[in-house]
Design a protein around this nucleic acid. Structure first.
Lengths: 172, 172
DNA sequence: CTGAACTTTCAATTATTATTGAAACTTATT
DNA sequence: AATAAGTTTCAATAATAATTGAAAGTTCAG
């Protein structure tokens, strides 16, 4: 077993935030939004907009908009602190719940519109060779998407326990 | 039941290509790449670079780069036509296979690097309150990602029949 | 009602990513 | 070997998306 020099905490924290941001970008979630989420996820206490601005070195407008988006997605909540007027925020700490929420939102925003379109495109007549090929591709795609939709829906509606158990069984 | 006027084929084709492109964009796949894929998916015959350029009104460079990317991803193949010197292309028509390939590539390119980083960040000492919270978040995240990785891996390695059967069982 | 503390908005700017097109390169034909 | 047909590359440009910051909007205490 190789000895690995333990990292400085600040270095580790930074590395995590940066990489979570990068992952977000490649999955259609804006970088800052993912970074704010990362920061809140690892913070033991609730944070104010100022705290977030300072930690991530971003502007007030940027912080505000992305915090709001996170609240919209249901993975960050506004918190109140006794004797303090400004808002504080905290992230959902249960990562399975975070996964469910993100899945649900993206499903709703991106997959469902496409499914509606596929359904509409199915009505095309299949006369020429081109039309037959088109119809067949659309039909397959719709069946595929609907299947995945089904799994995703189960996941989203499941309580963690149920899902986790099924998942284990499934993977076996 | 409402009567829906059947669409013109060209209109339908266009709508499909545009929307597949949009979906691609929001899932980290570039628009043109997704559009070329859509076009090949619904074409009964193999297409040349010129055909693709013309249909999508894109430049040669753009067409070339994105066709190559699709080949890299393993969902488009170069085809040869008797008596023709230039290259032709066709897309994998089995949509489950396409799903597996895309999943595998994104897994390899995006999820695995993050998993490596999480694994490395776990070595942090948990002394201060901050460090304990960090360690706990990282540990949870790694467990979650590893679980999902497991399902994805099964999916990628499965033959369609196996996966489809399991999926049905899973969704029930 | 007034002013201070705080939040939100949005036009302008900056950063990122995709696309073009012409030149360089490769391969096949005579 | 010369030419033609086809392909690839990549610096320049265009399109898209994120970010800033200052002004406008809210809310609350006195």
């Amino acid at each position: 077993m190789l000895y690995v020099c333990p990292m400085e905490f600040d270095e580790a924290k930074n590395k995590f935030i940066q990489n979570w941001g990068r992952l977000g970008s490649s999955w259609g979630i804006n970088k800052t939004m993912a970074q704010i989420h990362a920061l809140l996820l690892i913070s033991p206490n609730i944070l104010s907009t100022e705290d977030i601005m300072e930690e991530l070195k971003i502007s007030r407008g940027n912080a505000n908009m992305n915090i709001r988006a996170l609240i919209d997605w249901g993975i960050v909540t506004k918190e109140y602190k006794a004797g303090e007027r400004r808002d504080f925020f905290s992230a959902e700490k249960d990562i399975w719940e975070v996964g469910r929420r993100i899945t649900q939102e993206r499903q709703k925003r991106e997959v469902e519109p496409v499914l509606r379109i596929l359904n509409q495109l199915k009505t095309i007549e299949g006369k020429s060779e081109e039309e037959v090929a088109f119809k067949s591709a659309i039909t397959d795609l719709e069946a595929f998407t609907t299947s995945l939709n089904g799994v995703v829906d189960k996941f989203v509606k499941s309580d963690e326990h149920w899902f986790y158990k099924s998942l284990l069984k499934f993977v076996k």
